[in-house]
Design a protein around this nucleic acid. Structure first.
Lengths: 145, 145
DNA sequence: CTTAATGTCTCTAGCTACTGTAGCTTCAAG
DNA sequence: CTTGAAGCTACAGTAGCTAGAGACATTAAG
């Protein structure tokens, strides 16, 4: 049985984050010691490792919730899990495409900076006038976070 | 003089967002009509377009605040603006690198999915066990948003 | 001139995924 | 037995908006 601190250390998750996951129902309420401290067993460790790994891959907590409930039913088809993963992959790809466009735009902007005064600064000017842009770009969303 | 709705339409920014920018001090408080409605002139339009464009490039509002105060001082060196832009570029590049790693990992995971039951689903299994990973990956941050 | 539709006003709360604070209690080591 | 680290609860705050309530303003049609 691990205390919350040991569990966090083992899984690479901060203590308040574990309590947060419990609060939102991603982790079940654990046993408590006589002094009311949380005590975790192996299954909680596995579950937390799963969550952490999925977070590292950018899955939103809602998707992780779905994946966890799937993994609790080992006899069901894995098609649903596959769909979630594919959605995540699509979100990541979209985000990469968007950021790559931003990268090009920023590089262009910086390349043109003449290192003079603000009055003729291309960085400021580029930001002031969208028509200097080589392409369209959308406001970034948090889709892949 | 434009009402807030017209301004938002012209700049491609939603009305509550404009009020939010005013609230946090990115936009100055505009004149009001007899009926207490906000009225915007050309300079507010320019400023909002600047903000929008910078947001599209992923600059955080704090950076935009700095860029705006720089652009208000046209005689100063543009080095500071250059630094902000380069920081943003670095953040974007880092985010792309991270997402590209995630993309590879997700693709590997999905490729191995046998479309069987959850019990032998590679998606779930990959998430359960970090040791299947080809590489390290960190928890994504919002650095480039 | 009235009415209806739309736009705008303020204020508040909510979103994601945490992180930090305050003030207290419990535990383990020396 | 004392001390310091770790744990407890509860609440507030972060970014960058978004959504809703309920009241007032403006505009176009009839």
């Amino acid at each position: 049985m691990l205390t919350i601190g040991k569990l966090g250390e083992a899984a690479g998750v901060k203590v308040p984050t574990i309590r947060y996951y419990e609060q939102i129902g991603l982790l079940p309420e654990p046993e408590r010691s006589a002094g009311n401290q949380r005590l975790y067993g192996k299954s909680a460790q596995d579950r937390l490792a799963f969550i952490r790994h999925a977070r590292e891959l950018g899955f939103p907590l809602d998707a992780i919730r779905d994946l966890l409930s799937l993994s609790d039913q080992p006899d069901q088809s894995c098609a649903a899990a596959d769909i979630i993963a594919k959605e995540q992959l699509a979100a990541v790809k979209a985000r990469i495409a968007q950021l790559t466009a931003l990268e090009a735009e920023l590089e262009r902007m910086i390349r043109q900076c003449a290192q003079g005064t603000i009055a003729d600064c291309r960085v400021i000017e580029s930001l002031s006038d969208h028509s200097h842009c080589a392409h369209d770009h959308d406001v970034p969303t948090a889709a892949a976070e």
